[in-house]
Nucleic acid binder design. Sequence first.
DNA 1: GCGTTTCGTCGAAACGCTTCGATCGCACAT
DNA 2: ATGTGCGATCGAAGCGTTTCGACGAAACGC
Lengths: 346, 346
Amino acid sequence: MATMQDVARLAGVSVSTVSYVLTGVRPVSDTTRQRVQAAMDTLGYQRNALARGLASRRSHILALLFPAIERGLSGTALEFVTSAAETARRHGYHLVLWPTGADDEAETRDLVRQRLVDGVVVMEVKLHDPRVVELQRGDTPFTLIGRTADPAGLPYADIDFDATVRDALDHLTGLGHRHIGLLSHSRGSLQAGYGPTVRVLAAFEREARQRGLLTAIRHCDETADAGRAAVAELFAERPDLTALVTLNDNATFGAVAQIVDGGRRIPGDVSVLSVVSSPQVGALSHPRLTTMAAPGARLGRLGVESLLARIEGPPAVAATGASTLHELIPCRLDVGATTGPAPTTS
Amino acid sequence: MATMQDVARLAGVSVSTVSYVLTGVRPVSDTTRQRVQAAMDTLGYQRNALARGLASRRSHILALLFPAIERGLSGTALEFVTSAAETARRHGYHLVLWPTGADDEAETRDLVRQRLVDGVVVMEVKLHDPRVVELQRGDTPFTLIGRTADPAGLPYADIDFDATVRDALDHLTGLGHRHIGLLSHSRGSLQAGYGPTVRVLAAFEREARQRGLLTAIRHCDETADAGRAAVAELFAERPDLTALVTLNDNATFGAVAQIVDGGRRIPGDVSVLSVVSSPQVGALSHPRLTTMAAPGARLGRLGVESLLARIEGPPAVAATGASTLHELIPCRLDVGATTGPAPTTS
DNA sequence: GCGTTTCGTCGAAACGCTTCGATCGCACAT
DNA sequence: ATGTGCGATCGAAGCGTTTCGACGAAACGC
């Protein structure tokens, strides 16, 4: 494999000149540049990424921290990961996948101490996330996808759950619904302080109160069966519900089935609106679900781009955290066939 | 950040001794080892990954090559990626995501020339895959998930489509079905030489012929709507079908809806069996789909482990390709509620 | 016409590790 | 005793870059 030495020799220049051609930190005359370029082309030269990283103390590698297993990652996660990887690549960076287990704190520390990565993107952030605490302690730039309980000083991109819930309830109340249920993630997810679960719940309760809606809330595991059971209980408890907001893709399918089996029509008797989901998932249901799409790809891109800005930007930006990313993106409503006018109460 | 120098100084030994403690390539006395360990602990020392890689010409990084966008990656892909990342990590390796575009050949070449990765896992392999050709040209170890048209000399792990189709047809014929349709991926996917599409089709045709079944085959895009349309045509063309094998998760949901809308009951009139899928996806359907689960996690683990064997194994193994991975894993049948006895023809 | 910049280039010193050869005891067989 | 071999350690030479100081030569102001 050709090294910079080989290129320099072939082009009849010094090694440092070749480096300057590549990095552009010092001017190089046109004729020299062309000779070097030619040499690189004939040798098929590519810089050794490791050597470059060691010398410049910039590896051009980013880490994507995501919790392994537990909850099995949502469907939009793939979209997110892909988008993050592509964005990184477009900027000449690599993205390494870093699955963290339960003892994520130590693993996070080891990761940054290895000096392998220039920055870290943290996925599936919890309200009190030990990984974030650990990262704050170090000097490796990072951004959060999601956010902690008090994220003021931290750069993050997250779903705007308040707006999402507001839009969801606007849609439903606009159709005349006043009795609306919420089918959320598991209770464990709530207790673990998983952002979406906590924030959607809070927003739902607040917005419903403000609008004077009658509500019922249920947590359930991420399976169709659990969704079924939860909905059965929900309607037993409050038979007058005419609409259901769901935050749990898998459970939603069970919910729909259960509602139909229970003798209610969708959307004739009950409307179903799945939030933090996607039209693609919604299309799997029959009738097609009304969904609110999680902005997975956008979050991935934003997260990586803001991270790169911190890494490559002037030290001032990186240090002071000026112009810190604080982006909240609402889910986009995609009206399907599971939401319709509330039944007129006789 | 502490370096090996710091550790050596604190422990009162030379740098190389510290290195030997870490790598174990030369014996170190117990007392020395303990002093070094202590020094590392108090400094919170972690080896600089870049320096280590440069000096040892082993980066401990693996690349996962996957085609960006197009077909949007199946649901099991996430499972696969996660499993690959975890396996790598368990062995002290990192996994970088490498999305390749259309001109994947050049990108693949650049990747290996950077000497950033010790090995490459190739996902979504096509029958004639330029990435594989490129990799064969170089000396970077790689393994395929999926396989090319003639994979004899190449290490691969793939789904055993023959066995999967055989098992699928066994299940259906065992229930008395003789008229069986196949709903596959898009025709474009077939023409692109995407392994699963091509191999399932071939296996289906061969097995059906051997058993003297009446068949009808349809290709359609990966959407529920396309599935609907395709199934409508399918039954128009051959109304006597009593079973449908599907190889297309999204389309399957449309297919089921269309069958029901068409006035046929599932599984009373028509059985549906979704192959290269998963019970989790199957559970989203109501009634729950009978599926054959793609072994995503297993493939991820196998692929990475065999790659590591080539990388770390004796040069002989790496060079001769002795004990090359040739693993074919069938999908596992999970009987749901969409397959049942064939209707008795009056 | 003489300092003074600016431009383009070079050589050498890092970067933080691994690895190789050499050295030094010390136990062992002879 | 004498050589042999092995275990434990050290120093130094890389690995392939980037980056810094230096140095001519050309361009500039006055």
